[in-house]
Amino acid sequence: MLAAAVGQLIAVAVVIALSPLLRGVIENLKAKVQSRRGSSPLQPYYDLYKLLGKQRSRTPHGSALSVAAPYIVFATPIAFAMLIPVLSAAPLSWAFMADMVGSGFVIGIGGFFTNLAAMDSGSPYGGLGSSRSRFVSSLAEPTFIVVFFAVGFISGGTVPFVVNDALFTSSSHIVPSHALIAAAFLMVILAEAGRLPIDNPNSSQELSMIESSRLYEFSGPDLALFEWGGFMKLFVLLIVWLNVLVFPLGLAGAINVPAFAVAVASLAGKMLVAAILLVGIESALAKIRIMRVPEYLGGSFVLAFLGLALYTVGH
């Protein structure tokens, strides 16, 4: 019991500690692809350190919401990390608090409070960003639901730990549906985490920004918490994609030091591969116009739907 709790703590610590590195590596590799030298992979850590050291300045028009929101945004990916197989294949003590639908709600809370806080400040950009991010999320929802249906249908359960076990031990005829579902899930992850075909995380250009406009009225430690929460959100969503849907090998079978060390190393390796994949996607695609977002997310819905249909028919 104690060991499981410690294991869970380590998983959470890994998420907190490594998520800025993922962002840094992605930015660095992206710069390399564009023949630039790029900033150091450790740059996000420096940024966070600088922001955390700054004076806190809040808009006088904001309510208690703006005070609480950064902490909530920082906390939700951590709660999410307890529900998913970050390092160990065996469920840990808190893993059964929520299934995939429940953990989807948990990760949604962060976005919900970011929106509220953005509108709370009364800045027009905040409202703009909130409305756009709701637009994207509401369109991503059907895909998420169909993916959950599909994995629940295939594996007979929606707890992430059960799913990754079931997907890789059942018969081979689920392989096409499995691949389609994984592709659909990656597409909605990119949309949810504000990555390139939908939102450019590096730009603060009025016309196109979604995520950065929501954070316009925040600075110093508050902004650091928002940023870090964003890093962690991408990190944990990618963990779900990697460890549950794509490549569940390399997870610790037991809770002891060598097994966890191997698990951390394999997670880092998988994340590097995922980072290279993301860099490839983001270098190949341009940001799509906001009016075409329904097409992108509609495409991901069709992928997930076909995955489900193929499974049902082949069964």
Binding site: P294, E295, G298, G299, F301, V302, F305, L306, A309, L310, T312, V313
Partner: peptide
């Protein structure tokens, strides 16, 4: 419209898949 076309396409592939069974 494009999203409509996508949904019609999804419906059509379901028809095809179900017809085969």
């Amino acid at each position: 419209r494009f999203p409509t076309a996508l949904l019609i396409g999804a419906g059509l592939s379901l028809v095809g898949l179900l017809a085969a069974t």
